[in-house]
Write a protein that binds this DNA or RNA. Structure first.
Lengths: 157, 157
DNA sequence: ATTTTTGCAAACCTTTTGCATGGAA
DNA sequence: TTCCATGCAAAAGGTTTGCAAAAAT
């Protein structure tokens, strides 16, 4: 079992999510508030299916289409950002105004910071070398956090 | 002159794809050869749907399932690599044996390969700093290729 | 009052799977 | 001859859309 480690942005805060929707001109309806709350309460990357499940588990009256439409609205509003998991699934992460990169182990929840300066320099160098005017990039890292490495070693014995 | 150069290039690429399949222990069937030819002939990233279209346009007798199974085989054999476009579509690009990354032009789809040296150093540094045992990584870069930058400038007058 | 949003269901699109047949090694 | 691979069709997911009713502004 390979555990995943992804670079994500700062954890989501409910009020930030709602405000982003509001400021982007979206009406603040109760389904949207409910979904904002769900999204803000999920730690780490989440899929649309995960949100749909959460809706069902909480016994909320929110349709599947509304989940997708709201996720779309949240993305347009800049409250969440889509990432692509190695499995190919589309996932989303909350995103705060400041772009501080974190490393998070989705298994145990431990986080570590990644210095962004090096990556920015690397991207800049690549742009210069290839002649491309680079507008966006994604870096995904996969591996084992220290604790999980130890656990894996124990289990392998 | 230019045409001949093109043909030679395509054939070389095709043989690489077929050889990769062979060396990975896959049987060389005629559907696989046909699909290898299609994949080798596509310039830039391609989706499974694109391959299915190409099969239909050439009037080939190859089922949809075989397209997906062969793309999977090609990926396992290391002949192609999956990238995720900003649109969320799954696409594939042909790739040389060595580990590397691509820069994808968001306007025309041209790709350029990126030397991995610096990134490997960066990943190593992240691993050392965070204590994570990093097992894999993916870097995708999007921007405008030199040609499209020029075009954009022209259009902006 | 006007415009947006919602839930529902059905449509759509991509990808996978079961199975009998056909082909490669 | 022995598996592996194929085509077909059906299923399985994931996402979008049409529409009338409901809610926000």
């Amino acid at each position: 079992m390979l555990m995943r480690l992804c670079i994500i942005w700062l954890m989501t805060d409910l009020s930030l999510v709602v405000r982003a929707l509001d400021e982007a001109g979206y009406r603040l309806t109760s389904p949207r508030r409910a979904l904002a709350s769900i999204v803000a309460g999920i730690d780490g990357p989440f899929t649309a299916a995960r949100v749909v499940d959460e809706v069902r588990e909480r016994g909320l009256h929110v349709g599947r289409a509304t989940v997708f439409r709201t996720i779309d609205a949240l993305e347009r509003a800049g409250a969440i950002e889509r990432i692509d998991l190695p499995s190919g699934d589309h996932a989303y992460v909350g995103c705060a105004p400041a772009h501080h990169h974190h490393v998070v182990c989705s298994a145990c929840g431990r986080t570590a910071e990644v210095a962004d300066g090096d990556l920015a320099a690397l991207i800049g160098r690549i742009g210069r070398r290839t002649g491309y005017r680079i507008e966006d990039h994604r870096l995904e890292i996969f591996g084992l956090c220290p604790t999980c490495v130890a656990t894996a070693m124990d289990e392998a014995r």
